[in-house]
Nucleic acid binder design. Sequence first.
DNA 1: CGTTTTGTTTCCAGACCGTAAACGAAGGCG
DNA 2: CGCCTTCGTTTACGGTCTGGAAACAAAACG
Lengths: 162, 162
Amino acid sequence: MSVDVVRWPEQATRLAELREEGLPRLILVEGSGLPLVTADPLEDWIRVPADAQDLQLRSDTLIRRAESATELRPEIDAAGLVRFGDKWVALPPVEARIVQALVEGWGDVVSRETLAEKGWPDASVGGRNALDVHITRIRKRLRDSGMALRTVRSKGYLLEAG
Amino acid sequence: MSVDVVRWPEQATRLAELREEGLPRLILVEGSGLPLVTADPLEDWIRVPADAQDLQLRSDTLIRRAESATELRPEIDAAGLVRFGDKWVALPPVEARIVQALVEGWGDVVSRETLAEKGWPDASVGGRNALDVHITRIRKRLRDSGMALRTVRSKGYLLEAG
DNA sequence: CGTTTTGTTTCCAGACCGTAAACGAAGGCG
DNA sequence: CGCCTTCGTTTACGGTCTGGAAACAAAACG
Protein backbone atom coordinates (compact mmCIF):
# COMPACT_ATOMS: atom_id res chain seq x y z
CA MET A 1 0.00 0.00 0.00
CA SER A 2 1.35 3.46 -0.91
CA VAL A 3 0.29 7.08 -0.86
CA ASP A 4 -0.12 9.12 -4.03
CA VAL A 5 1.40 12.56 -3.79
CA VAL A 6 -0.17 15.33 -5.88
CA ARG A 7 0.58 19.01 -6.27
CA TRP A 8 -2.15 21.57 -5.78
CA PRO A 9 -3.55 23.33 -7.71
CA GLU A 10 -1.44 22.06 -10.55
CA GLN A 11 -2.66 18.45 -10.47
CA ALA A 12 -6.28 19.12 -9.60
CA THR A 13 -7.55 16.58 -12.12
CA ARG A 14 -5.33 13.86 -10.74
CA LEU A 15 -6.57 14.68 -7.25
CA ALA A 16 -10.16 14.34 -8.36
CA GLU A 17 -9.41 10.90 -9.78
CA LEU A 18 -7.79 9.72 -6.58
CA ARG A 19 -10.71 10.94 -4.55
CA GLU A 20 -13.06 9.11 -6.86
CA GLU A 21 -11.12 5.88 -6.45
CA GLY A 22 -10.84 6.28 -2.70
CA LEU A 23 -7.07 5.95 -2.69
CA PRO A 24 -4.94 7.53 0.04
CA ARG A 25 -3.40 10.79 -1.15
CA LEU A 26 -1.15 13.54 0.18
CA ILE A 27 -1.48 17.01 -1.30
CA LEU A 28 1.49 19.33 -1.68
CA VAL A 29 -0.01 22.78 -1.44
CA GLU A 30 1.87 25.40 -3.44
CA GLY A 31 1.43 29.05 -2.70
CA SER A 32 -0.65 30.33 0.17
CA GLY A 33 -4.16 29.40 -0.92
CA LEU A 34 -6.62 27.22 0.93
CA PRO A 35 -6.42 23.83 -0.67
CA LEU A 36 -9.61 21.96 0.02
CA VAL A 37 -12.19 20.91 2.50
CA THR A 38 -12.84 17.22 2.84
CA ALA A 39 -13.70 15.03 5.79
CA ASP A 40 -12.13 12.04 4.07
CA PRO A 41 -9.60 10.48 6.47
CA LEU A 42 -7.61 9.15 3.51
CA GLU A 43 -6.63 12.66 2.47
CA ASP A 44 -4.07 14.99 4.01
CA TRP A 45 -2.10 18.02 2.89
CA ILE A 46 1.11 19.84 3.63
CA ARG A 47 2.57 23.14 2.46
CA VAL A 48 5.68 23.23 0.30
CA PRO A 49 8.51 23.50 0.88
CA ALA A 50 7.88 20.64 3.26
CA ASP A 51 10.11 19.09 5.86
CA ALA A 52 11.01 15.57 4.70
CA GLN A 53 10.25 14.11 8.11
CA ASP A 54 6.81 15.71 8.24
CA LEU A 55 6.03 14.48 4.79
CA GLN A 56 7.00 10.95 5.72
CA LEU A 57 4.95 11.11 8.89
CA ARG A 58 1.77 12.27 7.19
CA SER A 59 2.28 9.70 4.48
CA ASP A 60 2.67 6.91 7.03
CA THR A 61 -0.46 7.98 8.82
CA LEU A 62 -2.46 7.83 5.61
CA ILE A 63 -1.17 4.35 4.90
CA ARG A 64 -2.17 3.25 8.37
CA ARG A 65 -5.65 4.58 7.89
CA ALA A 66 -5.99 2.91 4.54
CA GLU A 67 -4.81 -0.39 5.94
CA SER A 68 -7.12 -0.32 8.91
CA ALA A 69 -9.98 0.47 6.54
CA THR A 70 -9.45 -2.63 4.44
CA GLU A 71 -10.63 -5.47 6.55
CA LEU A 72 -9.04 -8.84 6.31
CA ARG A 73 -11.08 -11.74 4.95
CA PRO A 74 -10.35 -15.44 5.12
CA GLU A 75 -10.07 -17.71 2.09
CA ILE A 76 -10.61 -21.42 1.76
CA ASP A 77 -9.31 -23.65 -1.02
CA ALA A 78 -10.56 -26.93 -2.45
CA ALA A 79 -8.24 -28.91 -0.21
CA GLY A 80 -9.87 -27.52 2.89
CA LEU A 81 -7.09 -25.13 3.80
CA VAL A 82 -8.36 -21.97 5.46
CA ARG A 83 -6.07 -18.95 5.23
CA PHE A 84 -6.51 -15.84 7.32
CA GLY A 85 -3.77 -13.26 7.16
CA ASP A 86 -0.54 -15.15 7.56
CA LYS A 87 -2.10 -18.06 9.42
CA TRP A 88 -3.69 -21.20 8.03
CA VAL A 89 -5.56 -24.26 9.30
CA ALA A 90 -6.33 -27.55 7.57
CA LEU A 91 -9.87 -28.87 7.91
CA PRO A 92 -11.35 -32.29 7.18
CA PRO A 93 -14.00 -32.54 4.40
CA VAL A 94 -17.23 -32.00 6.32
CA GLU A 95 -15.83 -29.15 8.37
CA ALA A 96 -14.24 -27.60 5.31
CA ARG A 97 -17.64 -27.43 3.59
CA ILE A 98 -19.25 -25.94 6.67
CA VAL A 99 -16.52 -23.34 7.02
CA GLN A 100 -16.78 -22.54 3.32
CA ALA A 101 -20.37 -21.46 3.88
CA LEU A 102 -19.29 -19.38 6.84
CA VAL A 103 -16.48 -17.77 4.89
CA GLU A 104 -18.87 -16.85 2.08
CA GLY A 105 -21.11 -15.21 4.64
CA TRP A 106 -18.19 -13.65 6.52
CA GLY A 107 -19.52 -11.40 9.25
CA ASP A 108 -23.13 -12.40 8.63
CA VAL A 109 -25.29 -14.98 10.30
CA VAL A 110 -25.50 -18.31 8.48
CA SER A 111 -28.42 -20.49 9.50
CA ARG A 112 -28.02 -23.98 10.86
CA GLU A 113 -30.07 -25.26 7.94
CA THR A 114 -27.69 -23.73 5.42
CA LEU A 115 -24.69 -25.12 7.25
CA ALA A 116 -26.24 -28.58 7.36
CA GLU A 117 -26.99 -28.46 3.63
CA LYS A 118 -23.47 -27.39 2.80
CA GLY A 119 -21.85 -29.85 5.14
CA TRP A 120 -23.81 -32.83 3.87
CA PRO A 121 -24.79 -32.10 0.25
CA ASP A 122 -26.36 -35.53 -0.16
CA ALA A 123 -28.52 -34.86 2.89
CA SER A 124 -27.51 -38.11 4.56
CA VAL A 125 -27.00 -36.85 8.07
CA GLY A 126 -29.26 -37.98 10.82
CA GLY A 127 -29.40 -36.26 14.17
CA ARG A 128 -29.56 -32.53 14.72
CA ASN A 129 -26.60 -32.78 17.02
CA ALA A 130 -24.11 -33.75 14.31
CA LEU A 131 -23.81 -30.11 13.34
CA ASP A 132 -23.36 -29.00 16.93
CA VAL A 133 -20.49 -31.40 17.41
CA HIS A 134 -18.76 -30.15 14.29
CA ILE A 135 -19.21 -26.59 15.37
CA THR A 136 -17.38 -27.44 18.56
CA ARG A 137 -14.62 -29.15 16.58
CA ILE A 138 -14.30 -26.24 14.17
CA ARG A 139 -13.98 -23.88 17.11
CA LYS A 140 -11.17 -25.96 18.48
CA ARG A 141 -9.32 -25.97 15.17
CA LEU A 142 -9.77 -22.27 14.58
CA ARG A 143 -8.72 -21.39 18.09
CA ASP A 144 -5.34 -19.91 17.13
CA SER A 145 -6.25 -18.72 13.66
CA GLY A 146 -7.42 -15.21 14.51
CA MET A 147 -11.02 -16.09 13.73
CA ALA A 148 -13.91 -16.81 16.03
CA LEU A 149 -17.12 -18.71 15.40
CA ARG A 150 -19.96 -17.03 17.27
CA THR A 151 -23.39 -18.31 18.08
CA VAL A 152 -26.49 -16.30 17.32
CA ARG A 153 -28.99 -18.23 19.26
CA SER A 154 -31.97 -19.68 17.37
CA LYS A 155 -30.60 -18.12 14.18
CA GLY A 156 -27.26 -19.65 13.32
CA TYR A 157 -23.58 -18.90 13.49
CA LEU A 158 -21.23 -16.26 12.18
CA LEU A 159 -17.54 -16.19 11.54
CA GLU A 160 -15.59 -13.05 12.34
CA ALA A 161 -12.17 -11.79 13.31
CA GLY A 162 -11.03 -11.81 16.89
CA MET B 1 -18.84 20.28 18.38
CA SER B 2 -15.39 21.67 18.94
CA VAL B 3 -11.77 20.60 18.69
CA ASP B 4 -9.52 20.37 21.71
CA VAL B 5 -6.09 21.86 21.13
CA VAL B 6 -3.20 20.41 23.11
CA ARG B 7 0.49 21.17 23.17
CA TRP B 8 2.98 18.39 22.67
CA PRO B 9 4.89 17.10 24.52
CA GLU B 10 3.83 19.40 27.33
CA GLN B 11 0.21 18.16 27.60
CA ALA B 12 0.83 14.50 26.94
CA THR B 13 -1.52 13.44 29.72
CA ARG B 14 -4.33 15.56 28.41
CA LEU B 15 -3.78 14.08 24.98
CA ALA B 16 -4.04 10.56 26.33
CA GLU B 17 -7.36 11.45 27.95
CA LEU B 18 -8.76 12.87 24.75
CA ARG B 19 -7.71 9.79 22.82
CA GLU B 20 -9.37 7.64 25.39
CA GLU B 21 -12.60 9.57 25.11
CA GLY B 22 -12.49 9.59 21.33
CA LEU B 23 -12.80 13.36 21.09
CA PRO B 24 -11.41 15.30 18.13
CA ARG B 25 -8.08 16.90 18.94
CA LEU B 26 -5.42 19.01 17.29
CA ILE B 27 -1.86 18.75 18.51
CA LEU B 28 0.48 21.73 18.52
CA VAL B 29 3.92 20.21 18.13
CA GLU B 30 6.65 22.20 19.81
CA GLY B 31 10.25 21.71 18.79
CA SER B 32 11.31 19.43 15.98
CA GLY B 33 10.45 16.02 17.41
CA LEU B 34 8.13 13.47 15.87
CA PRO B 35 4.87 13.74 17.75
CA LEU B 36 2.95 10.50 17.36
CA VAL B 37 1.73 7.78 15.13
CA THR B 38 -1.99 7.14 15.15
CA ALA B 39 -4.41 6.06 12.46
CA ASP B 40 -7.25 7.80 14.28
CA PRO B 41 -8.97 10.19 11.82
CA LEU B 42 -10.05 12.37 14.73
CA GLU B 43 -6.49 13.40 15.42
CA ASP B 44 -4.27 15.84 13.53
CA TRP B 45 -1.16 17.86 14.29
CA ILE B 46 0.60 21.00 13.23
CA ARG B 47 3.97 22.51 14.04
CA VAL B 48 4.23 25.79 15.95
CA PRO B 49 4.42 28.56 15.16
CA ALA B 50 1.43 27.77 13.03
CA ASP B 51 -0.29 29.84 10.41
CA ALA B 52 -3.71 30.86 11.73
CA GLN B 53 -5.41 29.86 8.51
CA ASP B 54 -3.84 26.41 8.50
CA LEU B 55 -4.79 25.88 12.09
CA GLN B 56 -8.37 26.82 11.34
CA LEU B 57 -8.46 24.53 8.33
CA ARG B 58 -7.19 21.49 10.16
CA SER B 59 -9.54 22.19 13.02
CA ASP B 60 -12.51 22.42 10.65
CA THR B 61 -11.59 19.17 9.02
CA LEU B 62 -11.52 17.39 12.37
CA ILE B 63 -14.93 18.77 13.21
CA ARG B 64 -16.29 17.55 9.92
CA ARG B 65 -14.95 14.10 10.55
CA ALA B 66 -16.37 14.02 14.05
CA GLU B 67 -19.75 15.15 12.80
CA SER B 68 -19.93 12.65 10.00
CA ALA B 69 -19.06 10.00 12.55
CA THR B 70 -22.01 10.99 14.72
CA GLU B 71 -24.41 10.59 11.84
CA LEU B 72 -23.96 6.92 12.40
CA ARG B 73 -27.15 4.91 12.46
CA PRO B 74 -27.71 1.37 13.62
CA GLU B 75 -28.92 -1.40 11.36
CA ILE B 76 -30.73 -4.58 12.21
CA ASP B 77 -30.84 -7.65 10.02
CA ALA B 78 -33.31 -10.49 9.72
CA ALA B 79 -31.34 -12.60 12.16
CA GLY B 80 -31.77 -10.04 14.93
CA LEU B 81 -28.23 -8.74 14.72
CA VAL B 82 -27.96 -5.05 15.54
CA ARG B 83 -24.92 -3.35 14.05
CA PHE B 84 -23.73 0.05 15.16
CA GLY B 85 -20.41 1.21 13.83
CA ASP B 86 -18.04 -1.67 14.18
CA LYS B 87 -19.94 -3.24 17.04
CA TRP B 88 -22.81 -5.68 16.97
CA VAL B 89 -25.16 -7.37 19.40
CA ALA B 90 -27.34 -10.41 18.89
CA LEU B 91 -30.90 -10.10 20.17
CA PRO B 92 -33.48 -12.82 20.79
CA PRO B 93 -36.67 -12.71 18.68
CA VAL B 94 -38.95 -10.58 20.84
CA GLU B 95 -36.28 -8.05 21.65
CA ALA B 96 -35.12 -7.97 18.04
CA ARG B 97 -38.62 -6.91 16.93
CA ILE B 98 -38.83 -4.26 19.62
CA VAL B 99 -35.44 -2.87 18.72
CA GLN B 100 -36.33 -2.90 15.05
CA ALA B 101 -39.12 -0.46 15.80
CA LEU B 102 -36.72 1.68 17.79
CA VAL B 103 -34.13 1.62 15.05
CA GLU B 104 -36.71 2.69 12.47
CA GLY B 105 -37.57 5.58 14.72
CA TRP B 106 -33.92 6.30 15.59
CA GLY B 107 -33.77 9.40 17.74
CA ASP B 108 -37.52 9.71 17.97
CA VAL B 109 -39.91 8.60 20.67
CA VAL B 110 -41.65 5.31 20.00
CA SER B 111 -44.76 4.66 22.08
CA ARG B 112 -45.10 1.70 24.39
CA GLU B 113 -48.14 0.72 22.40
CA THR B 114 -46.18 0.56 19.16
CA LEU B 115 -43.40 -1.38 20.80
CA ALA B 116 -45.85 -3.89 22.20
CA GLU B 117 -47.46 -4.36 18.79
CA LYS B 118 -44.11 -4.88 17.11
CA GLY B 119 -42.82 -7.17 19.80
CA TRP B 120 -45.85 -9.41 19.81
CA PRO B 121 -47.46 -9.19 16.35
CA ASP B 122 -50.06 -11.79 17.27
CA ALA B 123 -51.02 -9.77 20.32
CA SER B 124 -50.71 -12.75 22.60
CA VAL B 125 -48.90 -11.15 25.50
CA GLY B 126 -50.58 -10.78 28.81
CA GLY B 127 -49.39 -8.21 31.34
CA ARG B 128 -48.08 -4.78 30.52
CA ASN B 129 -45.00 -5.63 32.52
CA ALA B 130 -43.66 -7.95 29.85
CA LEU B 131 -42.57 -4.95 27.83
CA ASP B 132 -40.95 -3.29 30.84
CA VAL B 133 -38.88 -6.34 31.53
CA HIS B 134 -37.71 -6.56 27.96
CA ILE B 135 -36.77 -2.90 28.00
CA THR B 136 -34.50 -3.63 30.94
CA ARG B 137 -33.03 -6.61 29.14
CA ILE B 138 -32.46 -4.64 25.97
CA ARG B 139 -30.67 -1.96 27.96
CA LYS B 140 -28.37 -4.56 29.42
CA ARG B 141 -27.58 -6.04 26.03
CA LEU B 142 -26.94 -2.68 24.43
CA ARG B 143 -24.78 -1.53 27.30
CA ASP B 144 -21.49 -1.80 25.41
CA SER B 145 -22.82 -1.13 21.94
CA GLY B 146 -22.57 2.66 21.90
CA MET B 147 -26.34 3.05 21.98
CA ALA B 148 -28.66 3.96 24.82
CA LEU B 149 -32.37 3.38 25.32
CA ARG B 150 -33.94 6.40 27.03
CA THR B 151 -37.28 6.78 28.72
CA VAL B 152 -39.69 9.57 27.87
CA ARG B 153 -42.16 9.35 30.61
CA SER B 154 -45.78 8.68 29.62
CA LYS B 155 -44.69 8.88 25.99
CA GLY B 156 -42.47 5.95 25.25
CA TYR B 157 -38.82 5.23 24.58
CA LEU B 158 -36.16 6.40 22.21
CA LEU B 159 -32.94 4.92 20.99
CA GLU B 160 -29.93 7.17 20.52
CA ALA B 161 -26.16 7.20 20.51
CA GLY B 162 -24.19 7.52 23.68
C1' DC C 1 -2.36 -51.92 12.54
C1' DG C 2 -2.71 -46.80 14.71
C1' DT C 3 -4.62 -42.38 13.68
C1' DT C 4 -8.12 -39.39 12.02
C1' DT C 5 -12.66 -38.44 10.73
C1' DT C 6 -17.38 -38.87 11.60
C1' DG C 7 -22.02 -39.73 13.69
C1' DT C 8 -24.74 -40.80 17.83
C1' DT C 9 -26.11 -40.65 22.49
C1' DT C 10 -26.46 -38.44 26.67
C1' DC C 11 -26.15 -34.98 30.07
C1' DC C 12 -25.49 -30.25 31.48
C1' DA C 13 -25.40 -25.26 31.29
C1' DG C 14 -27.33 -21.37 29.87
C1' DA C 15 -30.65 -18.57 27.07
C1' DC C 16 -35.29 -17.17 26.45
C1' DC C 17 -39.49 -15.23 28.19
C1' DG C 18 -43.58 -14.47 30.85
C1' DT C 19 -45.17 -13.54 35.64
C1' DA C 20 -44.99 -11.56 40.01
C1' DA C 21 -43.40 -8.55 43.45
C1' DA C 22 -40.74 -4.86 45.54
C1' DC C 23 -38.96 -0.42 44.91
C1' DG C 24 -38.67 4.29 43.33
C1' DA C 25 -39.62 8.47 40.77
C1' DA C 26 -43.13 11.82 39.01
C1' DG C 27 -47.25 14.15 39.19
C1' DG C 28 -52.03 15.35 40.91
C1' DC C 29 -54.93 16.93 44.58
C1' DG C 30 -56.79 18.41 48.83
C1' DC D 1 -47.18 20.25 52.55
C1' DG D 2 -48.46 15.10 52.85
C1' DC D 3 -50.98 11.46 50.56
C1' DC D 4 -52.12 8.81 46.80
C1' DT D 5 -51.99 7.16 42.10
C1' DT D 6 -49.59 6.13 38.14
C1' DC D 7 -45.84 4.72 35.73
C1' DG D 8 -41.31 2.82 35.13
C1' DT D 9 -37.25 -0.17 36.82
C1' DT D 10 -35.32 -4.02 38.50
C1' DT D 11 -34.85 -8.57 40.55
C1' DA D 12 -36.22 -13.19 41.15
C1' DC D 13 -38.41 -17.40 39.74
C1' DG D 14 -39.77 -21.34 36.86
C1' DG D 15 -40.96 -23.63 32.52
C1' DT D 16 -39.18 -24.49 28.27
C1' DC D 17 -36.01 -24.72 24.66
C1' DT D 18 -31.37 -24.62 22.49
C1' DG D 19 -26.52 -25.17 22.18
C1' DG D 20 -22.09 -27.21 24.14
C1' DA D 21 -19.30 -30.87 25.19
C1' DA D 22 -17.77 -35.47 26.70
C1' DA D 23 -17.85 -40.22 25.70
C1' DC D 24 -18.36 -43.93 22.69
C1' DA D 25 -18.25 -46.52 18.43
C1' DA D 26 -17.88 -47.15 13.63
C1' DA D 27 -15.80 -46.11 9.39
C1' DA D 28 -12.04 -44.27 6.56
C1' DC D 29 -7.42 -43.56 5.83
C1' DG D 30 -2.60 -44.08 5.61
